[in-house]
Write a protein that binds this DNA or RNA. Structure first.
Lengths: 150, 150
DNA sequence: TCTTATTGGTTGCATATGCAACTATAATAT
DNA sequence: ATATTATAGTTGCATATGCAACCAATAAGA
């Protein structure tokens, strides 16, 4: 059994990350709501679809991109479909599959959400970095994330 | 109206942060579950209470520390109370207030959760930093968080 | 003091999420 | 080909969260 203790710096780094992300995403949700816009999760999938060729992705692949498990993808797509932001079509190459396809209305909503989202990123996140720091930060973050690619 | 564009690096930093934190907290929840332990949110409040003098805090203050709004604090404390991990007492100095007080059972549970939590932090977070980087990282994160201290 | 506004906390109802079971199709094995 | 197993997606039920309304007590104003 190992030491089981974190140094003060280690604690600061970890707790800091948790709280930072919580503050930031709270702020994003807050601003979206204040502007009468849907939650961030909607933006997240609309963006992935918007970027995808043909504006469509299989639910499964979409789930991996936005880090949602399958039942939550199903239901999120339910809601978006109900609002006419995506359509849900049969997958041509796999009889089990479904693809979500972003509609023009969906693309427009994403565009409308972006400025609000953008301003939070700019004001509360990017503004806190000096020029060199951003690169450093990316390096750390990438290392962490690379563990989770598969 | 400004530019509304992020550079590739800015995007990487932001999206990286979001995904990193999502991966890491998913992993924490995962490991806790795998070990038959309650969710992270329980740990978070048990820790704050454990650190507090007398092991107790006003619900309101607790909420600020764990970044939960009041109704969620009420309900989280409901659940912890039901399990005998905290008691909910009247606040001596304010007739409106309530304090949550951690029980011995609560302290023990926190201790039991710690190694599981610790190992995720160690293995998936700290292990990714070279020595100098941690300090850099803290600096960035602190800047971000300092905006939100009221 | 008496009235009004604020604050701390709780609750009902609507929505969102987790879990396990289920259907249908596809991939693998014999 | 047939049987088995795995994968994609959905659904019912239980739990958790958000929102607005609420109660009770303190604080602020006239």
């Amino acid at each position: 059994m190992a030491n089981l203790k974190l140094t003060p710096d280690e604690t600061k780094a970890w707790m800091g990350l948790i709280k930072a992300q919580q503050h930031l995403t709270d702020k994003v949700e807050d601003e979206l709501k204040k502007n009468g816009l849907p939650p961030y999760s909607w933006y997240d999938v609309l963006l992935e679809l918007d970027k995808a060729p043909d504006g469509s992705l299989r639910l499964n692949d979409l789930g991996k991109k936005v880090l949602l498990n399958k039942y939550n993808v199903t239901r999120l797509i339910d809601r978006l479909e109900k609002e006419g932001l995506v359509s849900r079509d049969a997958c041509p190459v796999d009889g089990r599959g479904k693809v979500a396809c972003i509609t023009p209305k969906g693309r427009m909503l994403r565009q409308k959400m972006w400025p609000v989202y953008y301003s939070v990123i700019k004001e509360h996140f990017l503004s806190q970095f000096s020029t060199g720091q951003l690169g450093q930060f990316i390096e750390c973050i990438d290392r962490i994330n690379s563990q989770f690619k598969n």
